[in-house]
Nucleic acid binder design. Structure first.
Ligand SMILES: [Mn+2]
Ligand SMILES: [Mn+2]
Ligand SMILES: [Mn+2]
Ligand SMILES: [Mn+2]
Lengths: 217, 217
DNA sequence: AAATATTTTTAGTCTTATCTAAAAATATTT
DNA sequence: AAATATTTTTAGATAAGACTAAAAATATTT
């Protein structure tokens, strides 16, 4: 059995390395889970004892297969709950994360799988993140960053990299939502801003914004 | 903010006294939360410090208004989640309790209230227990124990007092479910058993079973 | 290759929620 | 009303998870 705290560390390690494959540093984990490096060292030893992580002193931490599966199960639950909150309970995409952080730790295989079925097996969460299946597998993101879309071409907004509510609220305010068709009109070398066009209007987005928008073509 | 553990103690105190009104003993609480008396003493002091409980050494514990509201909110969440699991996720009534014990601690006012709306404001959970509203109020149970139903009369099974999965599985096995119409045919003074008749058949139920069945007339 | 800076680990504390064993208070029997 | 039994509280420990400060290891500069 993994504790709530262990699960949060597993997620952090998973997200920091590529699926937990490459060793990540103590400090990086500490920042992600909002704790201190010394706390991370303690926890990481515990994960290694439980065969969830590979840990060599001073050399970083990676996940074992067991750890990776545990991490993806938590991520699967997180994203399914986010879909539930948005699709069934009228939450908006900037309100779901905090609640999903709690729901992801509820233990019941039946619960996850029935929820999955109830939601009709969604493949992506409200931010465009892929939902792993029971075995932790998911098809890789096929969307491309908006900077890599040629001038004059269009695509469908299908993933936002940053899903903090600050950014999501910016998108709400500017009427940009997942599923919207966006055309790239112009690129400005001076500040790396882009001029884009949606169904409803034309607008300029900053480099910071553009970096977080991904389109499927 | 109440912790998970505090919430479980509040529920226990609520259920042991009548809505936490009458003082309950340390030992009774300990048994309910599956801990030891000394742990209860500690926790109860903490609840009193937070103005959730009234505690006088050696004289038992009751709930303050604040404590009672906190307790009913947890109970409200527990029962709403049970309805969700049964009505939407294909859980049977003997499978929901353990999962609801976890879900009841998720913190989000919006979540509870949207869930309530999504389920179309159910008044009772899958075991016939009433679901408190936002203010902790619910209409008192109007069903009567099957022993108090006159011979020859019938009623609808609308509440089961014991909702351990042992008892619920007994009911499943004997095809007795909430909503079933049951007629009382005979009472046997020797062992206090009852002969009852359902839509599908006639059967004898023991005193132990009868004590847990409540009908609305 | 030293010297310096940064990162990581260790050592020792703290808090929350438990526990056991002993002491104190209350209840029940004789 | 004593004696005995039961219940409750206190005292002291333990485990999980976090922290600070100091020590040790690794990285980066000079
Ligand atoms: Mn999220
Ligand atoms: Mn998400
Ligand atoms: Mn229940
Ligand atoms: Mn119930």
């Amino acid at each position: 059995m993994t504790t709530l705290s262990e699960e949060n560390y597993l997620k952090a390690i998973y997200h920091l390395g590529k699926q937990g494959a490459t060793p990540v540093s103590t400090n990086a984990i500490a920042e992600k889970v909002e704790s201190k490096a010394s706390s991370v060292t303690d926890m990481v030893k515990k994960l290694a004892d439980k065969n969830l992580a590979n840990y060599v002193k001073y050399q970083g931490v990676s996940l074992t297969n067991k750890g990776r599966l545990a991490a993806t199960l938590v991520i699967r639950k997180h994203r399914l709950w986010e879909v539930f909150l948005v699709n069934k309970l009228n939450f908006s995409w900037d309100e779901v994360h905090e609640v999903a952080e709690q729901l992801e730790h509820v233990k019941s295989l039946k619960l996850v799988n029935e929820l999955d079925a109830f939601l009709e097996y969604p493949t992506h969460d409200p931010h465009g993140d892929p939902i792993p299946d029971k075995d932790g597998n998911y098809s890789p993101i096929k969307s491309v960053n908006i900077f890599d879309v040629d001038k004059g071409k269009e695509g469908v907004l299908s993933f936002v990299k940053d899903s903090t509510d600050t950014f999501l609220k910016y998108l709400n305010k500017n009427k940009l939502a997942l599923g919207d068709t966006i055309k790239v009109l112009d690129y400005e070398p001076f500040d790396n801003s882009l001029t884009i066009e949606t169904k409803t209007r034309k607008m300029i987005i900053s480099k910071e914004v553009a970096q977080n928008l991904y389109l499927s073509l």
